[in-house]
């Protein structure tokens, strides 16, 4: 087969090539064009993603304090230390709590928003934009707003003003870990920031559900509302839901900005990335143990993602429907 393809394309180009000089020939070459377009991106990927990953794995087997070119090989010592490090293991618990709260709430809220916006007869584009806009805000900026104006501990903070109406005294939302109000601050900030984006995904999926299905259901006697939602809409959204949950889990793993900015100098409420930041880039500058932690985390993310894909059928596409 390949010979036919060659015969189809190659001869005319080859015939004209000598006249126009060597560059014309090069431009006509598919291999050259392939590398021209993908080369820069592949180089970037290699330099900024794969080499650092490899370097990090290399570092995790060395004692690397205050240096990234270590000499002392320590085998699996860093891994052993990290796995018996209470702070690091505690950060995994923090992450689990965080994911257990944020994944279902974001899923439900963005789906709810999508259903509402989908039902709108006018100003739909307006509301779609309004809910999507927070996605464009940086996590750092949002954290500062949450910390300094909404959830500050003084009487004129927004949350405390509202509580003041009900005669409840000022609450120290972030300084006092008992009761852990800081979770409320962190979760609401993230909900506000990310719900709009997932709403758009759900909205697209909702608009893809064929109208005939609803008509058929109505003829079969399914009641509008809950019954239709449960037996038609939700199953039709399965592929999107799976993707959304996967993305949410990954995003939760990557959580850093709001924890770092809202919970300065605490010993609690540190997800893995914040913990690793303090180990690798804090006063210790311990890149060996930091890298070991990063490798453990990566393995964990891979395992969880694969496992989740298995039970929820991500990537099976048509079959899932």
């Amino acid at each position: 087969m390949s010979t036919t393809t060659k015969l189809d394309h190659a001869p005319p180009a080859a015939a004209k090539a000598p006249k126009a000089g060597p560059w014309r020939g090069l431009r006509g070459s598919r291999t050259f064009n392939f590398w021209l377009f993908t080369g820069p991106f592949l180089a970037g990927l290699l330099i900024f993603v794969y080499i650092p990953i490899g370097w990090s794995i290399y570092l995790s087997f060395f004692e690397a304090r205050f240096t990234v070119t270590p000499e002392k090989f320590v085998g699996f010592d860093n891994f052993r230390e990290m796995l018996s490090n209470d702070d690091f293991m505690g950060s995994l618990v923090t992450f689990t709590v965080f994911a257990a709260i944020i994944v279902p709430t974001t899923w439900a809220l963005s789906l709810g928003l999508a259903l509402l916006v989908n039902r709108l007869r006018f100003m739909r584009a307006f509301f779609r934009s309004v809910f999507f806009l927070p996605t464009a805000v940086s996590y750092v900026a949002a954290s500062l707003i949450w910390k300094m104006s909404i959830f500050n501990g003084v009487r004129f903070g927004l949350a405390n003003t509202v509580l003041g109406v009900f005669d409840v005294g000022n609450v120290a939302w972030l300084a006092n870990p008992d009761p852990p109000w800081y979770w409320l601050v962190i979760v609401t900030a993230r909900l506000w920031l990310q719900c709009g984006f997932y709403m758009i995904l759900f909205l697209a999926a909702l608009q893809n559900i064929p109208g005939e299905l609803y008509e058929a259901a109505a003829i079969d006697g399914a009641k509008r509302g809950w019954q239709t939602f449960w037996y038609i809409t939700l199953p039709q959204l399965r592929a999107t839901s799976t993707a959304v949950i996967l993305l949410l889990l990954v995003a939760a793993y990557q959580a850093f900005d709001e924890f770092f900015n809202l919970l300065e100098r605490t010993t609690w409420g540190r997800p893995p990335l914040v913990e690793l930041y303090y180990i690798a880039l804090g006063e210790e500058q311990d890149y060996g143990r930091g890298s070991a932690g990063a490798v453990i985390l990566t393995l964990l993310i891979c395992t969880v993602t694969l496992f989740q894909g298995r039970i929820m059928g991500f990537g099976r596409g048509e079959e899932a429907k």
Partner: peptide
């Protein structure tokens, strides 16, 4: 002191 409610916390 911290739990007494007499301490200003989370000031801007």
């Amino acid at each position: 002191l911290f739990t007494s409610g007499d301490l200003l916390l989370d000031a801007p």
